[in-house]
């Protein structure tokens, strides 16, 4: 036998908490991953939070962990993200980790592991939210992850959309880079659900957004979602200060509106790279990309582009976007 020098493929190993072993969601996923080695564990933290893990190596062979989430199920909207004016703005963590591997992602600084934890007790998240649903409430369900990217396996976006259908005050944002609109194309669109695609120029995707769909594939998914009647937001966020940044991202806006009618788009969000200084330090220690080594400014614990650079980028892109959209449909992320 000649030993291999290649890593295992993604999800070659399926770790399952004993207490979720008999849940239908678990059984369905096990049936989908028939080739995986199944390993029973007591608690996902025994695996996910272990000492001595190597994020970079695990990225090359991600494992899936099926687990039961305990409270809290909802978190107050973060300082780093836009609550779109909702008084109640929460995000959930139905998954920890992401199938994609973006060099600018704070998850590398947040977790010890590049593996993915998928919580299979989605109903408990819904129950936790019910007390808040007397008033308009926004929940970002794809905040610490990309739920649509794993939708074929997890069915989490679908479950949330169906839940939102029964709750008149519940608004959802499903942020994604996935082209997998097919996974939900049989669902009746809902006005209170916004599908939000993150777009980047193709050269940035190739360099910094590993394992993600191409720009063309994302644009096709956006066009399809609009045809189906979904509300679509486009997020050009984070904008990276790469060489020729203004022209590159300007061309991206042109490319977007070459495929998408401005009237059809719900909104456009623009934001430059930002990250907590603490997470940035961890990203630097991984030495995986040049991005963390940019000479950022740290303002109130947040690493950002120097104010002048940030303003130059945002005003240039805002001006460019304003050729297509009225100002109230363009949102800028800027440090409050």
């Amino acid at each position: 036998m000649t030993p291999s020098s290649a890593p295992f493929e993604r999800f070659s190993h399926l770790y399952i908490e004993r207490r979720v072993l008999e849940l239908p969601q678990t059984k369905r996923i096990m049936a989908r991953l028939t080739g995986a080695q199944v390993i029973i564990i007591e608690h996902y933290k025994d695996l996910f939070n272990r000492r001595g893990q190597n994020y970079d190596l695990q990225e090359r062979s991600k494992k899936l962990i099926l687990a039961h989430k305990e409270a809290p199920y909802m978190y107050e909207g973060s300082f780093y993200s836009d609550g779109f004016g909702f008084e109640h703005f929460f995000y959930t963590a139905g998954m920890l980790g992401c199938v994609y591997d973006c060099d600018y992602c704070y998850l590398q600084g947040l977790y010890n592991s590049a593996n993915i934890v998928l919580f299979v007790n989605t109903e408990d998240f819904f129950d936790a939210l019910l007390p808040y649903l007397g008033r308009p409430t926004l929940v970002a369900i794809s905040y610490d992850t990309d739920t649509l990217a794993l939708e074929s396996l997890a069915l989490q976006s679908r479950a949330w959309i169906e839940f939102a259908r029964t709750q008149a005050q519940l608004h959802l944002e499903i942020r994604t880079k996935s082209a997998n609109i097919r996974a939900i194309d049989d669902l009746e669109p809902l006005d209170r659900v916004v599908l939000a695609w993150t777009l980047s120029p193709q050269s940035v995707i190739e360099r910094y957004e590993h394992d993600t769909p191409s720009l063309a594939a994302r644009l096709r998914a956006i066009v399809r979602a609009l045809e189906l009647g979904w509300r679509v937001r486009v997020c050009i966020d984070p904008v990276l200060d790469v060489e020729g940044c203004d022209a590159l991202y300007g061309a991206l806006i042109d490319e977007l509106f070459l495929h998408v009618s401005p009237e059809a788009l719900y909104s456009l969000t623009l934001g430059t790279f930002r990250m907590s200084a603490q997470h940035l330090r961890r990203l630097k220690s991984l030495r995986r990309s040049d991005l963390p080594f940019y000479p950022y400014e740290v303002r109130e614990g947040m690493a950002l582009y120097p104010l002048e650079t940030e303003q130059r980028i945002l005003s240039s892109l805002h001006e460019h976007a304003a050729r297509y959209l009225e100002p109230q449909r363009i949102r800028l992320w800027q440090q409050p």
């Binding site: 036998m1 890593p7 295992f8 070659s12 390993i39 564990i41 190596l57 062979s61």
Partner: peptide
């Protein structure tokens, strides 16, 4: 891929490289 011992924590060596 899992190491146990009665009354103690379970351990999980990372399984990264393919083998047969």
């Amino acid at each position: 891929h899992k190491l146990t011992c009665k009354g103690q924590h379970d351990y999980y060596p990372d399984m990264l490289l393919r083998h047969a």
